[in-house]
Design a protein around this nucleic acid. Structure first.
Length: 304
DNA sequence: GAGCCGTGGGG
DNA sequence: TCCCCAAGGCT
């Protein structure tokens, strides 16, 4: 008999009940999303996770299908110009993600022989892959045991374990530790728990109108037991958009995306009146590498 | 660590 | 209508 070298969860605790309830609920109620097919590869998972950063599932699905059909491997994507990735990104938003995915494909070919790395730190080193996405790939593609803390999981755990309506703006060490402690000891169970929590947050324990009446872990939820108290933290910053540089960048890039090749500056001037802001936005797009100058007052997506 | 980076749908 | 937000990451 080997003594545990670190604290192990005690069998038969309330946590075990939560684990079972969430895993059972997921088995019965999860959505058949395109990236959950048996044929899904680690590369497909990475593509889906980056697309899903701040973009709803319904809008991601069709673009994801196009991407994996066209670029089924990192090498396939790395072989085309980055501008092709930006164009195929369509209107998912935050188009720098397309550029980063292309850069990740290149890095995976150069550093990992074309295979998406399994190691958390190697994943984290890829452009556009942060703490969440690295854990998501490690868990969803490779079945490892890590806490996967996206906005859904943070909200669910915050309610169930913390009794809070909504998670704090920034993640604390204590929050990470709480999530880690709540992981099932068994690796395969932990992976199902992680994806189950995420799905629960997306379908039941939502931000606006949580459906506690159908929640599989309502009875173990601190927030529900406390009468679902309202969020009492600091006011959250609404993201302004109309008239901002972001909107201007979006307009300019849409012109490039919808054109065959290079576009004259006049076409860009047409979609935004404020010259100062327009030039500032164009400069930032050039800085980001989303747009390149291909001649006198001519612009294009990179490499196209 | 606050602010920035797109887009569209629902309450 | 307006506001909020939806599987974050980077500086």
């Amino acid at each position: 008999m080997v003594l545990p070298t670190s604290p192990q969860p005690v069998a038969g605790t309330a946590l075990d009940g939560l684990h079972d309830a969430v895993c059972d609920w997921y088995a019965a109620s999860s959505r058949p999303l395109p990236w959950r097919r048996p044929t899904t590869t680690a590369w497909h998972v990475l593509v889906s996770e980056v697309m899903l950063q701040q973009t709803p599932v319904d809008r991601v699905a069709p673009v994801y299908e196009e991407w994996i059909a066209r670029w089924p491997t990192p090498r396939a994507l790395a072989e085309v110009a980055p501008g092709e990735a930006v164009r195929a990104w369509g209107r998912l938003g935050y188009p720098r993600r397309a550029l980063r995915l292309h850069a990740s494909a290149t890095a995976i070919c150069e550093r990992h022989d074309g295979e998406v790395p399994r190691d958390l730190e190697a994943l984290r080193a890829l452009p556009g892959v942060g703490e969440y996405t690295a854990a998501a790939v490690a868990v969803f593609a490779y079945g490892q045991r890590h806490a996967v803390l996206d906005t859904n999981v943070r909200r669910v755990l915050g309610r169930v374990l913390g009794g809070d309506a909504l998670p704090a703006a920034t993640m604390s060490v204590a929050e990470r530790e709480r999530a880690r402690s709540a992981l099932p000891a068994d690796t395969a169970t932990a992976a199902r728990w992680s994806i189950g929590l995420m799905e629960l947050g997306a379908l039941v324990c939502t931000a606006r109108a949580p459906a506690c009446s159908v929640c599989p872990i309502r009875d173990g939820c601190r927030w529900h037991a406390a009468g679902r108290p309202a969020y009492d933290g600091p006011a959250r910053r609404g993201q302004t958009y109309a008239g901002t540089d972001r909107q201007c960048r979006g307009r300019l890039l849409a012109v490039l995306r919808d054109a065959e090749g290079a576009v004259p500056g006049s076409a860009l001037r047409q979609v935004w009146d404020d010259a100062t802001q327009r030039e500032r936005a164009l400069d930032s797009l050039l800085d980001d590498g989303l747009v390149v100058n291909v001649g006198d007052d001519e612009y294009a997506l990179p490499g196209t």
